[in-house]
Simulated scan of single mutants.
Amino acid sequence: MTSSPKLMPVAQALEKILEQITPLQESEQLTLLKADKRILAADLLAPINVPPADNSSMDGYALAYADRGQPLVISQRITAGASPSPLQAGTCARIFTGAEIPAGANTVVMQEEVTLDEQGRAIIPENLVSGQNVRPLGQDLKQGNLVLAAGTRLDYRHLGLLASLGLAKIAVLRRPKVALLASGDELVAAGEPLEPGQIYNSNQPLLTSLLEDLGAEVIQMERVADTFEATEQALLKASENADLILSTGGVSVGEEDHIKPVVEKIGKLGLWRIAMKPGKPLAFGEIKGVIFLGLPGNPVSTFIGAQIFLRPLLGKLSGSAAAQEEALFKGIANFTALTQVRQEYLRVKAKQVEGEWQLDAYPNQNSGVLSSVTWANALAVLPPGSNIQPGDSVNFIQIN
């Protein structure tokens, strides 16, 4: 079974979207703590060796390997942070974990393996290995080698690594600026009283939080009245300062859905209506040179459209190397499903049973059931024309 020619397949639509996205190039210097979740602007080479010198991985005694198997005078005591003197020939040094190995020594024996004779000399065992218990210079990072590639999204692990190199600031890409619009006279902000026919606007907080988590800066949040004039005015205003205009609602074919004709008037509409369920009425184009993505107003369709299209779009725009492709996993279906001409995304819970992913479907897959997205941790991806039975292998993507 093939898709209707009026509906663009999901993979083709995503490819078409991404090929029109140019990553942001502007960068800024930030302190490490402020660089959390930001995108590294350029390849980072190690400015120093880590560790900067050979050091001991044990509390014990540092010596020249050739002097093993005999009593040795303890000529110095070296603590972590101290600068050692060169080791006198035929002696050893009392050394502690993390302390620098003195010149002339190349081996550390654990203190538990050493006894002292009546003269206070260390009796060194014979059965040692040259270089044992020594962390060599540059063991972790060698000066000049690549540490992190451009496009890396920094987190607490990277920040610790950068601090180990002595870096107090780092160059990161500018955050994409997103204007977020919600179309619909029926929408009311949470906390306000509901009048007959109205619903609470769940898309705005959902998308605002997701955008910020993906590293974007939300610069405008606005509810747009269901008129052509209000839609045109809001989109033109959004195009003045944003890198991406993201709207929800108004992209279907009803008399009060004005997104499509307005974008066609003041910009360009690159695609509209996708062979996916839920989320068919999705629009992409540009307004005054600014990227435009229009998601359906239905909350679950908004959520799934954001997972499938917004994440990779924003990943490429922000310069994130890892966020542009969604990893597919294989799981065993514990449900039945029959798809027609659209690729369907089922809200499922993925769990591992005896090393294999098992997928349970939420019992109500209606696109208005937003509570399902808090229950699910994955989306099963069902191609058009599928007849899924329990035990069948299906693809899924993880969500969080």
Rank of each mutant, 00 (worst) to 15 (best):
I101V: 02
T107Y: 06
I101T: 06
Q20P: 08
A11C: 13
V50C: 04
I219W: 09
E112R: 04
N377Y: 04
N133H: 13
S4P: 14
D59L: 11
S393H: 15
P390D: 07
A41M: 09
Q365T: 04
T339L: 00
Q233P: 02
D117P: 06
A11L: 13
G294S: 09
G331Q: 00
P23I: 14
E356Y: 10
G305L: 02
K349E: 10
I266V: 15
L346I: 07
T248C: 03
P261I: 06
Q70G: 02
T208G: 13
T107G: 00
I308D: 09
K316W: 00
Q324H: 06
P9K: 04
K351I: 12
Q198I: 03
S85C: 12
A238F: 06
A149F: 11
Q352C: 10
E229N: 07
V73H: 14
L128M: 10
D140A: 07
L146M: 05
R121M: 12
H258E: 09
V373I: 15
S239C: 02
A306C: 11
P136R: 06
E354V: 04
R94T: 03
I388Y: 06
A380G: 03
K142W: 04
Q220A: 14
N49G: 00
K142N: 01
N127Y: 15
G60C: 03
N400P: 05
L148F: 15
R347D: 10
R135T: 08
N145A: 13
Q324G: 03
L14V: 10
A66C: 12
S202D: 11
G184V: 02
P86L: 07
A168R: 13
L211H: 06
A66K: 11
A42P: 05
P299K: 05
N127M: 12
S130I: 15
M221P: 00
R273M: 07
E232D: 05
S4C: 14
E344V: 07
L246R: 00
